[in-house]
Deep mutational scan, measured.
Amino acid sequence: QVNIAPGSLDKALNQYAAHSGFTLSVDASLTRGKQSNGLHGDYDVESGLQQLLDGSGLQVKPLGNNSWTLEP
């Protein structure tokens, strides 16, 4: 069960990665100043990332080996 409060997208993504045990490689300029609506409930990694990114204009991309990145 994930419980991440709304706020900074950077912070939300870092909390989610730490909670879910995956690696997220992101260029900080992509997420700077963006906000997230947070995340509450049970999600697989990709669904949770998509939910956190909702409205940010960013997309999640798998890199393999439980690693992910973001792209515009």
Rank of each mutant, 00 (worst) to 15 (best):
Q1C: 15
Q1Y: 15
V2S: 04
N3D: 11
N3S: 11
N3E: 09
N3A: 09
N3R: 11
N3L: 10
N3G: 03
N3P: 03
I4F: 02
I4N: 00
I4V: 05
A5P: 14
A5R: 09
A5C: 13
A5Y: 09
P6V: 05
P6G: 08
P6A: 12
P6W: 05
G7T: 10
G7Y: 00
L9D: 03
L9P: 01
L9H: 01
L9G: 02
L9E: 03
D10T: 10
D10M: 13
D10A: 12
K11A: 14
K11E: 15
K11I: 13
K11N: 13
K11G: 09
A12M: 03
A12R: 04
A12P: 01
L13A: 01
L13I: 07
L13G: 01
L13E: 01
L13K: 02
L13Y: 01
L13R: 00
L13H: 02
N14S: 14
N14F: 14
N14R: 15
N14G: 10
N14E: 15
N14M: 15
Q15T: 09
Q15H: 08
Q15K: 07
Q15I: 10
Y16P: 01
A17Q: 08
A17G: 05
A17H: 03
A18H: 10
A18T: 11
A18R: 10
A18W: 09
H19K: 12
H19N: 10
H19T: 11
H19C: 14
H19F: 13
H19S: 10
H19L: 15
S20D: 07
S20I: 14
G21H: 08
G21R: 07
G21I: 03
G21T: 00
G21Y: 04
F22D: 05
F22E: 05
F22M: 09
F22P: 08
T23W: 09
T23H: 12
L24A: 05
L24N: 04
L24I: 14
L24G: 07
L24V: 09
S25D: 12
S25P: 03
S25V: 15
V26W: 15
D27S: 08
D27H: 07
D27F: 01
D27C: 13
D27E: 09
A28G: 10
A28F: 09
A28T: 11
S29C: 15
L30T: 04
T31C: 08
T31D: 03
T31Q: 01
T31Y: 03
T31L: 14
R32Q: 12
G33M: 05
K34M: 09
Q35Y: 15
Q35K: 13
S36W: 02
S36Q: 08
S36D: 01
S36K: 00
S36R: 00
N37W: 08
N37L: 11
G38L: 03
G38C: 06
L39C: 05
L39T: 03
L39S: 02
H40S: 12
H40W: 12
H40P: 02
G41N: 02
G41Y: 03
D42C: 15
D42A: 13
D42Q: 13
Y43M: 07
Y43F: 12
Y43V: 07
D44Y: 04
D44L: 06
D44N: 09
D44I: 03
V45F: 12
V45D: 03
V45N: 05
V45A: 06
E46R: 12
E46Y: 14
E46L: 15
E46C: 15
E46F: 14
S47G: 10
S47R: 11
S47I: 09
G48I: 06
G48R: 02
L49P: 00
L49A: 01
L49H: 01
L49I: 08
Q50F: 08
Q50T: 12
Q50Y: 10
Q51P: 00
Q51L: 14
Q51T: 12
L52Y: 00
L52I: 09
L52C: 03
L52E: 00
L52G: 00
L52S: 00
L52M: 06
L53F: 01
L53V: 12
L53S: 03
D54C: 15
D54P: 05
G55Y: 03
S56V: 04
G57L: 04
L58C: 04
L58D: 00
L58A: 02
Q59A: 11
Q59S: 11
V60P: 15
V60K: 05
V60E: 04
K61H: 08
K61D: 01
K61C: 11
P62I: 09
P62K: 15
P62M: 12
L63I: 11
L63P: 00
L63H: 07
L63V: 09
G64Q: 05
G64V: 02
G64R: 00
N65Q: 09
N65H: 08
N66P: 05
N66H: 06
N66M: 07
N66V: 00
N66C: 09
N66F: 07
N66W: 05
S67C: 11
T69G: 11
T69L: 14
T69E: 09
T69P: 04
L70W: 02
L70Y: 03
E71K: 02
E71W: 06
E71I: 14
E71R: 00
P72W: 09
P72C: 13
P72L: 13
P72M: 11
P72R: 08
